[in-house]
Simulated assay, not measured.
Amino acid sequence: MDNRTNLDDYLAGLGISGADDVETPPPAPEVAAFPASVAEAVPEEPSAVLERFLQGLITRIDPTLTVQVREGEDALEAEIGGENASRLAGRDGRTLGAIEVLAYTVLAKQAGRSDLRVRVDVGGFRRRQADTLTRLAERLALQVAKSGEAHELQPMPPAERRVLHIALKEHPDVTTESVGEGAARRLIIKPRHA
């Protein structure tokens, strides 16, 4: 079972063609040791599917990058590390978001698990972003508590809204609410006792 073949199959199934000029390392010995019929008969753990997909993807981008997958409370969490990992996040985390969508799609298709959430971080980008959003939430909560008036934020992705909701969940003076639909969905911070 060759990582390149599997990645090409994943990408082709998503309507994306792979680059033919990129060399990939030979398959790991433990993967090559299984005959195809045995590998197909044994259902694969979702974390193994995710790790294999991400490893194949990052090998094509930068072979020096590493990937670690672990099972979190409510999602499979992957950390891509290495000297140039943070560049993989892309502008405003867009590339990282695309990687998460691809990873979720592969997981749903290959492991039959569309119920699992997937979170991918590269070089601590998501962690830094969450810290920044948490500080913003605390600053806006103070402003709303002082003024007594709600503050509506610009539309933002679900993961970012979730960070703000969690940051202010236990706040004694404010509460949060998401309003709107789709890409226009935004968060409102309001006084708790209004």
Rank of each mutant, 00 (worst) to 15 (best):
D62M: 01
R161H: 14
R135T: 04
L142V: 14
G112Y: 15
E149R: 15
R94V: 05
R94K: 09
Q143H: 14
R70E: 11
D121V: 03
L65S: 03
Q143T: 14
T59A: 07
F125Q: 00
E77H: 09
T64I: 13
L88G: 02
V49H: 05
H165S: 12
Q55V: 06
R113D: 10
K109W: 08
E71P: 01
K109M: 10
F53T: 00
N84T: 01
E79P: 01
E77Y: 11
A111Y: 10
D115C: 12
V101I: 10
G97M: 04
P158Q: 07
E152H: 14
T134P: 05
V101D: 14
R119W: 04
V163R: 04
V120L: 09
R128W: 01
R94G: 08
N84Y: 02
Q129W: 05
A130I: 10
R117P: 10
L153Y: 07
R127D: 13
I80Q: 01
A48I: 14
N84W: 00
P155L: 12
L96P: 02
E83C: 14
L57T: 06
R161K: 13
T64G: 07
S147Q: 15
E71Q: 12
T59P: 12
R94C: 11
A98S: 13
Q55I: 05
L102N: 05
G97K: 02
I166R: 09
E79H: 08
T59K: 04
E71M: 07
R128Y: 03
V144E: 08
Q68C: 14
R139K: 15
F125S: 00
G56R: 01
Q154W: 12
S47D: 11
A150G: 07
L76V: 05
A111K: 06
V106I: 15
L54W: 02
A98F: 08
E149Y: 14
L96C: 02
L133H: 06
G123S: 09
Q143P: 15
E71Y: 09
Q143I: 10
G72H: 08
L102D: 04
G81F: 02
V69R: 00
A141R: 01
G81C: 03
D74Y: 08
A89C: 11
